[in-house]
Amino acid sequence: MFATHNDVWAEPLAAPEGTDSYWSYHRWPAEVVGIVAFGAADAAPPVVVVKWSDGLLVALHAERGDIAWTTRVQTKDSDEYWGRRTGTRTVYGDETLFSLYSARSGSSPVVISSGDTKVDAFDPISGRQLWSVDLPTCHGVDWTGEQVFATILCSDGVHTIHLYDAGTGRPAGTWVPPWLSASSTSAERSWIRWLTACRTESSECQGFQVRREETWRIHADGSVAKEPVVSSDIDDRIAGDVVVRRTDGRLTGLRRDTGDQMWQIPLDSRRVIAADAGTVYLLTSANDLACVDGRTGTVRATVQLPGAGWNAYSMYVTDGFVVIERVNPDARERDGDRSYYYGSRPVVLATC
Rank of each mutant, 00 (worst) to 15 (best):
V317Y: 10
A286T: 13
D337I: 11
S344A: 11
L267W: 08
D276V: 10
V348S: 09
F321G: 00
D248K: 15
G249A: 05
M262Q: 14
D260E: 14
I324L: 10
D248M: 03
E333F: 09
I234L: 14
A274I: 08
R271M: 08
I265K: 02
G240P: 12
Y341I: 08
T298W: 03
G259S: 02
L283H: 07
E333K: 06
T252N: 01
V303F: 02
I273Q: 13
G278Q: 12
W263N: 10
G320R: 07
D337C: 05
I324R: 01
R256W: 02
R338Q: 14
Y341R: 01
R246Y: 04
V327G: 01
R245Y: 10
V322P: 04
T252D: 11
V292P: 11
L305T: 02
A286E: 12
L283I: 12
D235V: 12
R250F: 09
L267I: 02
Q261A: 04
D260H: 06
L349G: 12
G249V: 06
A331T: 07
L282S: 06
V322I: 15
D330G: 05
D276R: 13
S269W: 03
G336F: 04
N328A: 06
A308I: 00
V317C: 13
S344Q: 12
S269M: 05
N287K: 01
A312P: 06
D288A: 09
Y281P: 11
E333Y: 06
T252K: 08
D241P: 07
R246L: 06
N328Y: 04
V299L: 08
D319L: 13
S285D: 12
L267H: 01
R295V: 08
R345G: 04
Y340T: 03
D248E: 07
S269F: 04
A277E: 14
R300C: 08
A301Y: 05
R255E: 14
D235R: 15
Y316K: 03
A277P: 01
D268M: 05
Y342Q: 05
P266R: 05
P329W: 03
V244C: 10
L349K: 01
